[in-house]
Design a protein around this nucleic acid. Structure first.
Lengths: 324, 324
DNA sequence: ACCCAAAATGAACAAATGTTCACCCTCGAA
DNA sequence: TTCGAGGGTGAACATTTGTTCATTTTGGGT
């Protein structure tokens, strides 16, 4: 087993020829009178024995390693961590939006179906979208809106603007996200256009979602006209820590069974999970529990967040392995 | 053209995934939502930009870089440089022999034709050969011998012993290397066995040769019984600096045209040149000119020598590029 | 000498990687 | 707006690399 000097010597010569001179293994074999397979094995050995060292230099001012740890820990396709200049909500949201837009654009080619929910973070994302001309792309709304006043943030508007920026077709849900009764919901779902839109969202290639949390400014909590104080407390009692597109989940990212679900017009969590790429964008104070839950439950497979939240997620001693 | 930070960031992530996590480019593409081709190109870029650094660590106590320079400068398939413990002729020769044997064994598989000349250095090489059992190999003598007295070094003996060590068949030339007249030479060449042996040597896969020089102990010079003082002076006047298998060459490795060639029984330089792998072994004081010439003329394509001679060969400002 | 277990080998196959080329953006000028 | 140059893109192809497995070789024990 102990390797003689002259062995190392040969390993060195071959490694040098391969990695520096960029000869092919075939050429090296010919020159040194070895078989190509043997050269392959010797190179393998050279790497093993540390004769060949490959270093990847981390670019400064970046959180690539944090990202890698998140990816590994939560089984993500990708994690993107940004370092906001300041940690006030407005700035964090803006920077998250920029990063999410970059990340999204990188994986779009111009022919896929993108479905998205809405919220302040996604608004920032849409604001950061560059302009494209992708007539073969479709942007589909994932959840009903929340009425007039906040239409710019909580309705079809984001979907429309995203589609416009990308030069894509759009598909909106002309209905509220939460209605008064199951009956009303069923009536709306009977509408061909709405049903088809949801069906299309369900087979999207990419989803872009914000992760709601139980902060005072939470969307879900604010819809007091349709959700009573009592119902909100029931949801909390059932372990709710956050929502994606109005669908509430518990600390393990499991859907919460509650009557309110029957009054919601949006993709279900299970449907979202089935989308190949679900980009979750969330960060700043108060989002931690919700993000952790979404990661645990495998509700998203790409996460865009800030460095503090990222560090906090990794400080957890041992989180459940995701199921994705 | 100027590379933005976030570009480098992506390069880093991908390089890390490829070189550290050993994911395939295909997997990386899938994860990051890129095409495989793009990943390939990004990795290329990462190497270019120095984000990926590949170092090959030189094993200590070795002359790998000297070897590489020799290879590059003289267009060799391989150079082997040894550092003799002491520089007395006996020791240099012993160490050269060891190295040559290693180098030879490395490129033999057991089914080829090996042709060899003779001399003190080759004797050391044969002494260092390990024992094998290669019935499909043939060892062929390349040049006639030099008579009784020094038979052990200057005749068929080396070929026989090499074949024996390797368990190979052997093919000897039962004739002197230099005869008295062209007539005598022609008569010997008419012998079927001798002719066939030379023909076989000519199509050998590997040749093992010593490089003769004009040192006082030179073989060629010592054959005074057949070479007159005058003839030797003629050869020198024609520029002779050394010989391979009794075939003399000038400072550029070109064969010397002289009557003595017609009285020699050995492969010609042109024939030797055509052998795919010609391992030249020589080193120590006095061999420099001869080695340089053989290299210049492309007479050999593998060189085994000592570190001092190697350094001297490289100190030459600008030698002719070899023709091989 | 002979035999055997363990390691090494390379041919054939499978996978991964690199390259080419036709096409499609994007952007800037008319 | 149209046009065209220049750069980027990925499908298809070519090359390179890795792996498996039947066979050979080696080294050590009789």
């Amino acid at each position: 087993m102990s390797t003689h000097t002259s062995d190392k010597h040969l390993l060195y010569k071959i490694a040098k020829a391969y990695y520096q001179d960029e000869l092919t293994q075939h050429d090296i074999a010919r020159r040194f009178g070895l078989s190509r397979v043997k050269v392959s094995r010797l190179l393998e050995q050279a790497r093993q024995e540390g004769i060949v060292k490959i270093t990847v230099v981390p670019p400064p001012g970046t959180f690539a390693d944090l990202e890698r740890q998140l990816e590994a820990r939560f089984g993500l396709l990708e994690a993107v961590v940004v370092a906001p200049a300041r940690y006030d909500r407005a700035n964090v949201v803006r920077e998250l939006g920029q990063a999410a837009a970059d990340c999204l654009m990188r994986c779009l080619k111009g022919r896929e179906i993108l479905t998205m929910s809405w919220g302040t973070t996604l608004r920032a994302t849409v604001d950061a979208l560059p302009s494209r001309n992708w007539p073969h792309m479709t942007v589909v709304q994932m959840a009903g809106g929340l009425g007039r006043p906040e239409a710019e943030v909580y309705g079809s508007d984001l979907t429309r603007r995203a589609a416009q920026a990308l030069g894509a077709r759009s598909r909106m849900i002309p209905a509220p996200g939460i209605v008064a009764s199951k009956l009303a919901r069923d009536a709306l779902l009977a509408d061909t256009h709405i049903a088809e839109t949801l069906a299309m969202a369900a087979r999207a290639d990419v989803a872009l979602v914000g992760l709601g949390a139980l902060t005072p400014d939470s969307v879900v909590l604010q819809v007091s006209s349709l959700l009573t104080e009592e119902q909100i407390n029931e949801l909390k009692a059932l372990g709710m820590v956050g929502d994606i597109a109005l669908r509430c989940y518990d600390a393990y990212g499991r859907p919460i069974r509650h009557e309110v679900n029957e009054r919601i017009i949006a993709l279900e969590l299970e449907q979202i999970k089935r989308i190949p790429r679900v980009i979750g964008v969330a960060g700043g104070t108060g989002k931690y529990e919700s993000i952790r839950a979404a990661l645990r439950g495998g509700l998203i497979n790409v996460l865009v967040t800030d460095d503090r939240t990222a560090a906090r997620l990794l400080s957890e001693p041992n989180s459940h392995r995701t199921e994705r």
